[in-house]
């Protein structure tokens, strides 16, 4: 059961979105998230949905993979919806139960907020589903590089992410082994009260931590033996380069941003419920 956990949900197909430079995808995702907060009309959201749909279609990743991320934040979406539904002050009363007032404005805000959340999650899923973890870390390293002058350890951050990704399967295997060893000696992880269940995790976590520290030390020695001395004077085998495809992506994003802002002003002259 422990093997079901996957980190880095990359979906390997060949598509124009997959081939984009990771830095470009990171930047566009960032722009997308920021502009999402400027959308305030249903027409705007309809346009976002169309654009997102077009991107998903060209990424060749099945829609259900994109929507999988929503499930995990369903609770948050429902919670935001309820809060907004009852707390938004409005004019047109829809329903009144005791002290709870639901207005048309409240319904509109609640809907918009949850749509925004869904788009946020689906949009960032596009990034993680179409970019390998390595390209993503390389992209982050390269974006952070200019900030290393002001003390941001860009190379170290990327290195830590790479090593973490490398050791997740190893440590998962190890956890599995330790759990089986404990179960063979009569340990019970599945029954009992929450407190008992939590307590039964201690004999798993202690050996796991000890082994992780030992691994870390051995890995550090092995890295030193291979001449690792930080990011200074280090070269890379894969040199990332921005191509024509990436400029096209930026141009499309620019058009998208323009339309978002145009729709925002359009919203000023049409009623709130559109």
């Amino acid at each position: 059961m422990i093997r079901d956990i996957t980190i880095g949900q990359y979906y390997p197909v060949a598509s124009p979105i997959h081939r984009l430079d990771a830095r470009v995808k990171l930047a566009i995702t960032f722009i997308y998230i920021v502009t999402l907060f400027f959308v305030d009309s249903f027409i705007g959201y309809f346009f976002v949905m169309l654009s997102l749909g077009a991107v998903i279609a060209s990424s060749k990743v099945p829609l259900r993979f994109m929507l999988r991320g929503i499930k995990s934040i369903m609770v948050i979406i429902v919670f935001t919806m309820i809060i907004n539904l009852f707390t938004t002050k409005g004019e047109t009363l829809l329903l009144e139960i005791g002290f709870l007032r639901i207005t048309w404005e409240g319904v509109a805000v609640a809907l918009k907020m949850s749509i925004r959340l869904v788009f946020l999650i689906v949009g960032s899923s596009v990034l993680t589903l179409t970019t390998t973890p390595i390209h993503l870390t390389d992209g982050i390293e390269s974006i952070l590089k200019p900030f290393s002058k002001i003390g941001v350890p860009s190379h170290e951050i990327a290195m830590m992410m790479t090593i973490a990704l490398r050791f997740i399967p190893t440590l998962l295997d190890e956890t599995d082994k330790i759990m089986k060893a404990q179960q063979a000696r009569g340990a019970d992880f599945d029954t009992g009260t929450l407190k008992e269940k939590a307590q039964s995790l201690i004999p798993i976590l202690v050996p796991l931590f000890i082994s992780a520290f030992r691994r870390a030390e051995e890995l550090a020695t092995a890295m030193e033996a291979r001449c690792y001395h930080g990011g200074e004077n280090r070269t890379r085998m894969h040199v990332v380069s921005i191509g024509r495809r990436d400029f096209v992506a930026f141009a499309v994003t620019a058009v998208y941003v323009c339309i978002i802002f145009l729709l925002r002003h359009a919203a000023e002259i049409v009623p709130f419920w559109i």
């Binding site: 973890p133 390595i134 790479t162 090593i163 990704l165 490398r166 190893t170 691994r215 051995e218 890995l219 020695t221 092995a222 890295m223 033996a225 291979r226």
Partner: peptide
């Protein structure tokens, strides 16, 4: 080194 797992750095 001895332990093959503890000397590989990258995911590929």
């Amino acid at each position: 080194f001895q332990n093959p797992d503890n000397q590989l750095v990258a995911t590929v």
